[in-house]
Design a protein around this nucleic acid. Sequence first.
RNA 1: GGAGGCUUAGCUCAGCUGGUCAGAGUGCCUGCUUCACACGCAGGAGGUCGCGCGUUCGAGCCGCGCAGUCUCCACCA
Length: 877
Amino acid sequence: MNRELAKQYDPKEVEDRIYQMWLDGNYFHAKCDPEKKTFTIVIPPPNITGQLHMGHALDETLQDILIRFKRMQGYDTLWLPGTDHASIATEAKIVEAMRKEGVTKEDIGRDGFLERAWDWKAKYGGRIIEQLKKLGSSCDWERERFTLDDGCSKAVREVFVNLYEKGLIYRGERIINWCPHCCTSISDAEVEYEEQQGHFWHLRYPFKDGSGYLELATTRPETLLGDTAVAVNPNDERYKDIVGKTLILPIVHREIPVVADDYVEMDFGTGVVKITPAHDPNDFEVGLRHNLEVINVLTDDAKIVADYPKYAGMDRYEARKAIVADLEAEGALVKIEDYSHNVGTCYRCGTTVEPRVSKQWFVSMKPLAGPAIDAVKDGRTKFVPQRFEKIYFHWLENIRDWCISRQLWWGHRIPAWYCADCGEITVSREDAHVCAHCGSKNITQDPDTLDTWFSSALWPFSTLGWPEETEDFKHFYPTNTLVTGYDIIPFWVMRMMFSGLEQTGQVPFDTVLIHGLVRDSQGRKMSKSLGNGIDPLEVIDQYGADALRFSLATGNSPGNDMRYINERVEASRNFANKMWNAARFILMNLKSDEVLPLKPENFALEDKWILSQFNTLAAGVTENLERYELGLAVQKLYDFIWDVFCDWYIEICKSRLNGEDETAADTARAVLTHVFTGTLALMHPFMPYITEEIWQSMPHCGEALVVAEWPTYTEAFNFTAEEGEFEKIMAVIKAVRNRRAEMNVPASKKAKVCIASATPETFRAGAAYICRLASATEVEVGDDFDADGAVRIVTDAATVFIPMKELVDAEKELERLNKELEAANNDKAFIEKKLSNENFVSKAPAAVVDQQRQNLAKVCDKIALLENSIAEMEKLK
RNA sequence: GGAGGCUUAGCUCAGCUGGUCAGAGUGCCUGCUUCACACGCAGGAGGUCGCGCGUUCGAGCCGCGCAGUCUCCACCA
């Protein structure tokens, strides 16, 4: 017989055991069955830098819901897991760990460093995977990948060489964003701007001919060392005559020209800008237009170069102080203003980024962006919610070339070799040993690695075996849904799109499901510095993975940020417990493990009602899931399980289960089990552990819920008419409860209930549970009762009498009845007004008008019953 | 400067193509050792759906304007 279940659900006792059962059953493994339709998701690979946070928990939960849903629907589902080497982030962490040991990268060399990095990967990559499992993620672990594994590396080389051969990857000297802390270039997307309090230094540069000074302002006086011009707007009348004249740069005493350029805003500051091509992106452009010299004044770690002995070795900020002091001494400093402006910082370490001219590798973006824009414009890939298309388009339409080389060691090394003899570059899929141009063996590989996003961009196909035409690639590519946060669109989504289109000719996925950020209870971003982060694993430990998943999937609409509220997880835990106890109830009322057949000929009214309700639920949940309305789906399930199934159906079944009629009891058992196991199936994607655990202990067909069939709408169980009848009974029960509560009658004080109705059969059928749920001793259905000294209750379909003489105050009863009558008359007038509006009747859809007519009929019935009651009361008085 | 989100019960939020849409959870109040569950049961109070104008037979839901708030992008030295 069924095993005893504990009174409270204990996730700790269940989760690991169930997860192991799934693994043993190999249920997550995609079979690559050519006969079946596929549904594929590739995981946004978590970085191996640390551990899972709430954002991951949300991301993985959404993916797992979709995957489990499709798996149960019979698709050949693949959820491909893996991790990202996260070059800059991981390297920074390792360097930091080494610093604590007093070791530098240079001390141990490239190979030694990579050895440490792979150790790091083994340790933290493995930890992330374990954390994913704790959440219940049903990934195909046999297909786990890593962005730096052999297959992905091969894909990276293939793509690099492809693009190089097409002229879409080039090497050039450009101004790029440089992080002086990480000592590497970073891409535009990796720069974060933040407002900082700074100063505006007003300086004056003397004319060479001694004809006075030109005043200008700067936020970065130290870059003066690299000034090679001063610019004014060509239309600026004030400076018309000085364009072309020569200035003497203070301190350095170099001669620099005054140039005219549209870039200068006339009405900002003095309308004069000092031009430092080597250290400002706009100045660099100006420099190109005017053929200005580019003078680099900073080292890799943002110190002044040796060319300026007085300041050499000072960092940017020390040099600023020293130079300002010298400017003052020289009489070149006019004044200092406070000024607040935006400063670019490195998204990984927060250091102020230094724009810098440097030789780097770039991807030509314009030719790649076009097809990626088209693919979304023509609907081959859809964003959910659609509004995120705008971010995507905006980025692609304004894109600049992508700087892909990084001065880091942890990553895919750039497959380019430089020849010391002929100076040419050899780019190759295989490691090169001789120069492709002159055959010299005197070649060395570029020391740099690729931006970590270069490999992530290939993730949807590199993980499936591309560039080989593998079975997996043919079967599962393109993938279906990509789930990620809106903050990752420019980094990743966009790049996967153009990479997929360029390399495979197809979009990498048909849908991008975008979610928001998980914030703390006060709406702040969770961050290490604030210390307000909540560890999903601790939440799982306390409340269970299902409770966490449920909380993350509900009460939030797609793309919007959500707050993490502990009380909501508690509520979810309580809900899990509710399901658990519903299961306990059913199990303790079953006689065997056998699946009882449903016998429609024995169905009672309530059975038809619940089956019909379940039908609606299955159809609704399926539709919501297909439309990515996960929050709506889960809300329907919650309401059904708690309000419909537990509070009504289970309660109503109790009289049959405890009664003499074994056939009736068996019918109740069969329907209870059928509906409940079906509901568990619908609930499974959201709360996989508890549903599987319960399902296993209930009578069932099949091995496991994870691979059970998804419930569908069944026409044979569509009992609309019976639902209406049953709702009449519910209305009576609610009304009686309500009146008793109003009169402060305890449930223990039971009383006879008499019902007069035009549909007496309905109420005879429901007599047993009216007794149970409305604290009645017995139910009498008829059409004539002694109303003297009885409490009267009127519903749409019935008049109810409760003989409780001691409680009846005829005056008050009358007053109440009249009040209800007034309300009903108001309703009636409102509906009649609507129906007498010809515009409404002619323009509104027939169904809406019909609904109003039905409402009118109901109200009229109620009014008739109320009037009748009032008349009788008056008589008695 | 540009774009977008949000503004619905004390709090946190749902409300799909406009027509039982005024909801849920939590909190609060009143009862309840009802044979699954007090992580529970029954009942209840609480909102002119930010403000104004418009479209419509009908508007939290569509349009315009305003206010508050948050975010993203750009960035004037």
